[in-house]
Simulated scan of single mutants.
Amino acid sequence: MLIFISGAVRSGKSTFAESFVKNYATEAKYIATSIRIDDEMSDRIVHHQKQRAEGDIKWQTWEQPCNLTELTFHEDDVVLLDCLTILTANELFHDDEDALARIYKGVSHVKTQCKLLIVVSNEVFQEGIPEDEMTREYMYVLGKLHQQLVQDADEAYLVVHGIATKMKG
C-alpha cells in the first residue's frame, strides 16, 4: 500500500504523516533524507526527532539521503519516507543523469518490500516557472515523481495549514 502526502513548507504534512502511521502500527521505520547542511536544517531535524520521540510509535530511523534501493524492509513493516523533495535534490546533486528513473525505482523498491509506505513531499509549484535551468530541472523531476506516485498511490492527501484533504482513495 502507498500513501502520498504533500503540502507547502511547514504546512503540517510531516505531523499528519506521523500521526497517520498510528492507524497501522505501533512500530514503524523512518527514512530520513535530510543532510545537516546548516543550522536551520539541523534545527528541523532535531524538531522532527523530538516530535517522533514524544509520540506513541516506536521509530527506527534510517538516514538515507540517496540510493533507496540499498534499503531492506520486511513485508509487515510500515515505512515513512520524509521527504521526497529533499531526496530529489540530493539525487540530482549526486548524479543528475536518470535521476527521475533512479528515484522512482528506489521508492518502488521500498514499496514492494513493506506493508505500507507513506511518502511525504513538498508542493513547490505555486510560484510559477523559475528562470534558472537547474531549478526548472528539479521542478520537472519532482513534478513527474508526484504524478507517478499519486497514480500508484492508494491514497493521496494535500495538507494546508495543518488540515489534510483527501485527494485520492
Rank of each mutant, 00 (worst) to 15 (best):
L2E: 01
G7K: 05
A8C: 11
G12Q: 05
K13M: 04
K13Q: 11
T15W: 09
F16G: 10
A17M: 08
K22T: 14
N23V: 03
N23H: 12
Y24C: 08
Y24K: 10
T26C: 08
T26A: 12
T26E: 11
A28T: 05
A32E: 03
T33Q: 06
I35D: 10
I37F: 00
I37M: 09
D38H: 04
E40C: 08
E40P: 13
I45E: 04
I45L: 10
V46M: 02
H48D: 08
R52C: 02
E54Q: 11
G55K: 06
D56Q: 14
D56T: 13
W59L: 04
T61C: 05
T61S: 11
C66G: 08
T69Q: 15
L71P: 10
F73M: 10
H74Q: 12
V78H: 02
L81C: 08
T85W: 00
A89T: 15
F93E: 14
L100G: 06
A101N: 15
I103K: 03
V110Y: 09
K115P: 09
L117T: 15
L117E: 11
I118T: 08
V120E: 03
N122P: 14
N122R: 13
V124K: 12
V124Q: 06
F125C: 11
Q126Y: 00
G128P: 15
G128M: 11
I129Q: 13
E131K: 11
D132K: 07
D132T: 13
E133I: 12
M134R: 06
T135C: 03
R136S: 10
Y138T: 07
L145R: 03
Q147C: 01
L149Y: 09
L149T: 13
Q151M: 01
A153F: 01
Y157K: 05
H161P: 09
K166R: 14
K166H: 08
K168G: 14
